[in-house]
């Protein structure tokens, strides 16, 4: 069930260049059940420019706390990254559908930039059920690779950096792991050009593939019809409600 809830900011950890990891605990009540790939609509109380909530992917959630990894992308997200610890933050959650978790075989989880956020929890969930998990994480530079230790503790991690400061030098989409014959499923979240390139490779190779979209949205619950994605089967559908995760077979990419 979706809820509107107050959370207390337990810790605000600056990470990489221009990111904050917000660690939140409910002020009252218990943590709602969250599926990997779902998101929260975050009220930005400390910013005059932010009229609407900001949709932020859930990085990690257990029965006690929840993490949001936020990239400084504008006035609203800058304000979120600057929230003082102990601030009360109002969230609507959990929103959206989330990634498939009934995956058999070998799953490759491909993330770029802040798009790695939902893949951590997805990897943990898949590994716990016995799916073989591999991460392929990309960034401009080593310092933009966030939570690398946490990913490494979950499963095998391959890295691509554009400047070659860590791992493969180049784009994630050029990484040899994407050509591995073991892969039976891909889950991808990152910049649009990266997701489109991964989707193309998955199609060519006949691999089942899900991507997480970040279409601009207002309500986050399928009411305003602003964040639509044009699908093969149903025309315009709300990315906030029927997504943000879509099987690439539904998309007109």
């Amino acid at each position: 069930m979706k809820q509107v809830m107050d959370f207390k900011l337990k810790a605000n950890e600056k990470c990489g260049h221009g990111y904050s990891l917000l660690r939140l605990v409910p002020v009252h009540g218990t943590m709602p059940q969250v599926k990997p790939g779902q998101f929260a609509q975050v009220a930005v109380s400390n910013c005059r420019e932010a009229y609407l909530r900001r949709p932020i992917s859930i990085n990690y959630a257990d029965s006690h706390e929840m993490w949001l990894l936020v990239r400084r992308a504008g006035a609203g997200t800058n304000a979120l990254c600057d929230l003082p610890e102990s601030t009360v933050v109002n969230l609507m959650l959990p929103l959206g559908n989330g990634f498939s978790t009934d995956v058999e075989g070998c799953a490759l989880l491909v993330g770029g930039g802040v798009g790695i956020a939902p893949l951590l929890m997805l990897g943990k969930r898949l590994a716990a059920r016995g799916t073989e998990v591999r991460f392929l994480l990309g960034a401009r530079s080593m310092s933009d690779l966030l939570e690398l230790d946490l990913f490494r503790r979950t499963a095998e991690v391959a890295v691509a950096t554009e400047d070659g400061t860590l791992g493969y030098k180049g784009l994630v989409t050029e990484h040899p792991l994407l050509q591995s014959t073991d892969i039976t499923h891909i889950a991808c979240c990152g910049p649009m050009p990266m997701m489109k390139a991964v989707a193309r490779i998955a199609r060519e190779r006949g691999i089942n593939c899900e991507v997480s979209l970040e279409n601009t949205m207002a309500c986050g619950i399928g009411a305003c019809l602003c964040c639509v994605e044009d699908t093969v089967d149903s025309g315009n559908v709300c990315a906030c409600k029927e997504g943000p995760v879509f099987n690439i077979n539904r998309l007109k990419w």
């Binding site: 279409n215 601009t216 207002a218 994605e229 044009d230």
Partner: peptide
Amino acid sequence: GNPYPRMVETPSGMLNAVGLQ
């Protein structure tokens, strides 16, 4: 309705162009 993008935040408000989907 209209093609995406359909929404942009503005000072204390928003513009929409949903187009009666």
